[in-house]
């Protein structure tokens, strides 16, 4: 199957010494949702700008549906839509007018224009406010309008740079519900940058973690979390301690990596807690050991990030900064 995105050894150097991207390679299947997760300054936006043909790589190649983003830029631009991180609609005209201007720029035929515009307005939940000036919109509405603009042409791939930055949780949820619906209807590939771990985890099929211009790991959220070292199953038993033989037998169960016993607490390190739990329960039953309490602890993407990037993603500072910028621009 044709790759939606194929990046090979891309390096981008700004001002002759800053390596924003330091040898990035990446392949994304068509029709999937891909999240590029990383902290501020990791190179997420730079990679997206290369893929959307805004800038060229210093070395290496990037392909979108097999088309070179440098040599075949104008072909690429016909297949993609892009929502930049910054606000990208005109605030001094109405939402409908924004869509109308973009539909004309995209060359949507006159007789289809109205239908398509109403369609995206409807699907982004903006129909009732479409004739209001954009400067009266809330942040979430502006974001949805921006996405609506990007959906006018039914792109083969949609690039979203921090799609929900500065939005409150309920607005974020609405934005993603609409995006998922659109993807279901049209099979659009979605490539998004984010520093929200939950967003990457809930909505994407594949996650790559980027730090300091390098992709440090890539996989599904489950794979990534497993790679941290496994899940923890914690039992509290009604009696103190386990017999040496019992312990040995336990260690023999497949999938158990480690067992630690301390008084009535027994802690297992396992690959897949849900899979192994019934086995352990059956085992304890057979041995007439009564279990009072069980808990499962799973690694989070934050642990994954910590393992591969060596730091945690710091969200707070960045978020307020961007919200501030967006507000400033709106006042503009």
């Amino acid at each position: 199957m044709e790759k939606a995105v194929d990046v090979r050894d891309v390096v981008k150097i700004f001002n002759k010494n800053f390596r924003a991207l330091d040898g990035v390679s990446l392949e994304i299947e068509s029709g999937s949702i891909f999240a590029l997760l990383g902290p501020n300054g990791a190179g997420k936006t730079t990679l997206m700008r290369i893929l959307t043909t805004q800038i060229g790589p210093s070395s290496g190649h990037a392909y979108v549906f097999g088309l070179d983003t440098v040599k075949e830029g104008s072909q690429v631009r016909k297949l993609i839509s892009y929502v930049p991180q910054e606000m990208s609609v005109w605030t001094d005209i109405s939402g409908y007018e924004n869509l109308l201007i973009y539909s004309k720029i995209y060359g949507i035929p006159k007789e289809e224009r109205n239908n398509i515009i109403n369609g995206v307005l409807e699907s982004m939940g903006l129909h009732d406010v479409s004739n209001r000036l954009v400067k009266t919109y809330s942040g979430g509405m502006i974001r949805r309008l921006e996405i609506a603009c990007a959906l006018l042409v039914r792109p083969k791939i949609l690039f979203l740079d921090e799609p929900t930055i500065g939005l409150d949780p309920s607005a974020r949820k609405v934005v993603w519900e609409k995006l998922k619906m659109f993807k279901k209807d049209y099979g659009t590939t979605i490539f998004f940058n984010t520093h929200y771990m939950d967003e990457a985890e809930i909505y994407s099929d594949l996650i790559a973690i980027i730090n300091r211009g390098k992709i440090v790991t890539i996989g599904t959220s489950e794979e990534l979390k497993h790679s941290v070292g496994g899940e923890i199953l914690h039992f509290i038993l009604s009696e103190n301690g386990l017999h040496e033989d019992v312990l040995r037998e336990l260690e023999g169960i497949e999938g158990i990596k480690d067992v630690v016993v301390s008084n009535s607490d027994v802690t297992f390190v396992v690959n897949d807690a849900e899979m192994i739990l019934p086995h352990i329960m059956t085992f304890f039953n057979k041995k007439n050991i009564f279990v009072r309490r069980v808990s499962i602890t799973k690694p989070t993407l934050d642990d994954v990030f910590l393992k591969y990037a060596g730091t945690r993603i710091d969200v707070s500072g960045r978020l307020s900064e961007v919200t501030h910028v967006r507000r400033m621009i709106r006042r503009g």
Binding site: R49, T52, T53, Q54, S74, R77, K78, I80, S81, Y82, V83, P84, Q85, E86, M87, S88, V89, W90, Y102, I105, Y106, G107, C149, I329, G332
Partner: peptide
Amino acid sequence: VWERESGILKKLLVTPA
């Protein structure tokens, strides 16, 4: 300049125009 500070120019440059 304002459109540069916002994302409008970036978006325009990514259209087939």
